[in-house]
Design a protein around this nucleic acid. Structure first.
Lengths: 156, 156
DNA sequence: AGTGGGTTTGACGTTTGCGTTAATGATAGG
DNA sequence: CCTATCATTAACGCAAACGTCAAACCCACT
């Protein structure tokens, strides 16, 4: 019971202010994500100050991508990140305290979530590429129309 | 004054319910968009029922794409669609009631808006392609890890 | 004339995703 | 020890984007 799977014993930790700066979200948002279960409760210093790891920061970035790029709600994101536990990813295959079946199950859950994200992103990409093409065509047509108009004007 | 630039005099028109079905939004949403200035007030039948054109439907689809794909707010979308007026697009270059300068100005506004959308979509596409790549790498790693675990189990 | 279903305008309600104080406590430096 | 600058929880606030009635009205049909 010396390892609570908590801090890696030596990795650098950051206070909420710095995490806010680095991730571009507010402190309020970080506490909010924690409250909503999107971030695991971070370790604390004696006085109660939150201490975040690099993994936590990566997770915040991930949450923001899922929000901004995929347009998922925090509820949806929560489901996804729950199956992701970074530490679990690093150790899932090598943790000796799990039965092989359980380890396989976890990796499978991760795969499933990743597939879902991949599918969502692929669908969106298709639609966006289509939209981009449309925009380019519009742009071409408008530019052409503009050229015509300007020639007309000078010709008048 | 025989043409109010309203219905094309013969094109098919649809009631709100059918438009809702075809676009996948609710009637409430259609009225809401109108209220917010995202849709121009449609024509009405004698009794006051709204009558939408194909162009209106296309516009709703457009609004939804800007929402879902680009993640824009309705306020932002409003600014954009205001400069887009479909009928205006079709006729901007050919309307005789506008000075050449005004026609050029309108086309320029359209070009500007299109460029903005194109830029947003391009930025997003880049980020999403990156994310997709990451997901594929993850998927590969997880799948590999899974294979290992299953071999171990059968080998045990 | 009656009936069933679609539509109208309000108006209030709801959810999401935080923002914004307020009052209090912790840390570090001089 | 004093002080400046973090941080803490709790609680209320808020804008966006609709949802959900309610009560009346319209339309088509028999």
């Amino acid at each position: 019971m010396t390892q609570e799977a908590k801090p890696a014993l030596d990795e650098p930790l950051f206070q909420i202010g710095e995490v806010a700066d680095r991730t571009g979200v507010t402190q309020r948002t970080l506490r909010f994500y924690e409250e909503k279960g999107l971030l695991k409760p971070p370790t604390r210093m004696e006085g109660g100050f939150r201490l975040y790891s690099e993994d936590d920061i990566a997770r915040v970035d991930q949450i923001r991508r899922l929000q901004n790029l995929l347009g998922l709600t925090l509820a949806e994101i929560k489901e996804m990140v729950e199956a992701e536990e970074v530490r679990e990813e690093l150790n899932a295959t090598y943790r000796p305290d799990l039965t092989p079946e359980e380890r396989i199950a976890r990796v499978n859950r991760r795969i499933e979530v990743t597939r879902r994200q991949h599918e969502i992103i692929s669908t969106k990409l298709t639609a966006m590429l289509e939209m981009k093409k449309d925009l380019e065509e519009r742009l071409a047509r408008s530019t052409e129309a503009l050229a015509k108009l300007e020639k007309e004007r000078s010709g008048a």
